[in-house]
Computed example of a mutant assay.
Amino acid sequence: MYIWEQRNWPDFERDEPLLRPTLNIVRLLQGRAFGKTEAASTWLLALDGDQPRIGEP
């Protein structure tokens, strides 16, 4: 069954106190993934020579 075939589409109910711990973990992991991709892109740019290396003026 597709989501739009459900009887209560699109008026879903949610239990925020039940979801909050999981959402907090997902948000933390999302931030970690973003930080790692940002660090990797900075490192790759520094290797390419287009940008100054980290810590250099």
Rank of each mutant, 00 (worst) to 15 (best):
M1E: 06
Y2M: 14
Y2I: 10
Y2N: 08
I3E: 07
W4Y: 05
E5M: 03
E5Y: 01
R7H: 04
R7P: 06
N8G: 01
N8S: 08
N8F: 07
W9G: 01
W9R: 02
W9L: 03
D11S: 06
D11P: 00
F12H: 03
F12R: 04
F12Q: 01
E13M: 00
R14C: 06
R14D: 04
D15C: 02
E16F: 01
P17K: 01
P17D: 04
P17I: 00
L19M: 04
R20K: 09
P21A: 00
P21E: 02
P21L: 02
P21G: 00
T22H: 11
T22S: 04
L23F: 04
L23K: 10
N24C: 07
N24I: 09
N24R: 13
I25Q: 08
V26N: 07
V26Y: 03
R27F: 04
R27G: 09
L28G: 07
L28Y: 11
L28C: 02
L28V: 11
L29R: 08
L29W: 07
L29C: 06
Q30L: 09
Q30G: 09
Q30P: 00
Q30F: 07
G31Y: 00
R32H: 05
R32S: 07
A33H: 05
A33C: 10
A33F: 08
F34V: 12
F34L: 13
G35W: 08
G35N: 08
G35K: 06
K36F: 05
K36Y: 10
T37I: 12
T37C: 11
T37D: 10
T37E: 14
E38L: 15
E38S: 13
S41R: 15
S41F: 13
S41T: 15
S41Q: 15
T42D: 10
T42F: 10
T42I: 13
W43G: 11
L44T: 11
L44Q: 12
L44N: 14
A46Y: 05
A46D: 10
L47Y: 09
L47G: 13
L47P: 08
D48Q: 15
D48S: 11
D48R: 14
D48G: 08
D48H: 09
D48W: 10
D48P: 04
G49E: 03
G49A: 03
G49L: 02
D50R: 15
Q51P: 03
Q51S: 13
P52T: 12
P52Q: 03
P52H: 04
R53D: 11
R53G: 11
R53Y: 13
I54K: 14
I54S: 13
I54C: 07
I54D: 14
G55P: 03
E56P: 03
E56G: 02
E56H: 07
P57L: 11
